[in-house]
Design a protein around this nucleic acid. Sequence first.
DNA 1: CAGTTTTCTTAAACTACTTTATTTTTCCGC
DNA 2: GCGGAAAAATAAAGTAGTTTAAGAAAACTG
Lengths: 214, 214
Amino acid sequence: MIGVSTNIFLFLSLMHNQSLESPYDLIFKNIARYIELTADEKELYKSFLKEGSAKRKEFVMLPGEITKYEYFVTKGCLKVYSLDRNGVEHVSMFAIEDYWTGDMASFMTQQPSTYFIKALEDSEFLMINKENFEQLFQEIPKFERFYRNLYQSSLVNYIRRTNQGIALTAEERYEIFLSRYPHVANRITQKDLAAYLGITPEFLSMIRSRMSKR
Amino acid sequence: MIGVSTNIFLFLSLMHNQSLESPYDLIFKNIARYIELTADEKELYKSFLKEGSAKRKEFVMLPGEITKYEYFVTKGCLKVYSLDRNGVEHVSMFAIEDYWTGDMASFMTQQPSTYFIKALEDSEFLMINKENFEQLFQEIPKFERFYRNLYQSSLVNYIRRTNQGIALTAEERYEIFLSRYPHVANRITQKDLAAYLGITPEFLSMIRSRMSKR
DNA sequence: CAGTTTTCTTAAACTACTTTATTTTTCCGC
DNA sequence: GCGGAAAAATAAAGTAGTTTAAGAAAACTG
């Protein structure tokens, strides 16, 4: 899980009172974790963003496309995944409110993506394209610092997940996911969670019944 | 493999003619991938670094310690690894010349590390401590950009490795490692490579004999 | 270069996870 | 609230990778 949510409680309060927060309030709070923006800078940044949305089951991105945007989810839940050569689905991350997502490799290198991004719920997000992303660093150099910190946190999470994938059993990984991302776990299906954990839904089901018998 | 080597050929030329390059030339070339430093800035940066070395089989870092430094390898090869609760070794990365390494999570959060760093060959490196790391961004803000880019590349590599770990068989991961990091592969033992791939040395040996029979 | 330690190989028994198939339960679009 | 589709549970047979053990090859150390 790359995106590094600012704060679970912020997200929970949003759940109960979504209309009070605009999508921009959420993204500014996210950015304020690492840098402070002046009112002018906020306006400029806002002008670099585009609003997007997708209904449940709609695709936000398809493999083969050159990734145009990085996404910041303001409502709903996106699933980022790919298919291996046997057609088996592998989920790279779930992005809920306050998470950044996209295909970073494709966005950075402008090579075709190998990922699908699909909305699991009716979703809304803010998007920044490659030109604006580059421009951002020219206009507001502080953003170098923001992204340096964002990527730093993401890396720590990825390193952890890589090592877990190698060192732990599926059951252990499942338990860790439940305790670390409970608010994600109860929004997604077991099938999708299995695809994130790297196991079959049948085996996840077995794990669950084994665990409940203890 | 996190560190993102600038250039294999640079490294190869170093192998043949090490005395001509100082460790600082190497790190400045590494940094020049993303930002340009003035002579003054180079001097200042140099003053933030410390030189270190370790003989073959010596430990550079032990678990339990709070990580003091990030390391840039200028000679030799370091192995970053941890032990799981069964005492099985899991290699997180090999760092050769021109690679950055360390325990980023521990360095950033100043929590005790869970990693060993051990020299596989007589090695030399440059180190930056946490205070100087923070200071660096105050004194030379350009470094935000450098690290933003460095972390970006590392993330792309990590995302790739995570997905490979889940989607591919051990044999496929072995072949990919060989073609992607041939210069690392022939400097390390099969035992260490197996611990990187997440399999037993016995199984790697089996894979190799299976492959050679084709 | 001899002795010792470590690494590598091979092979048989074992385990975590997959595959395939069937049944039951949940969900969501009308 | 109903009908159809998707998800979840259960179970049996199969496979990728582990474990244990023992011998052969390589590689440090004195």
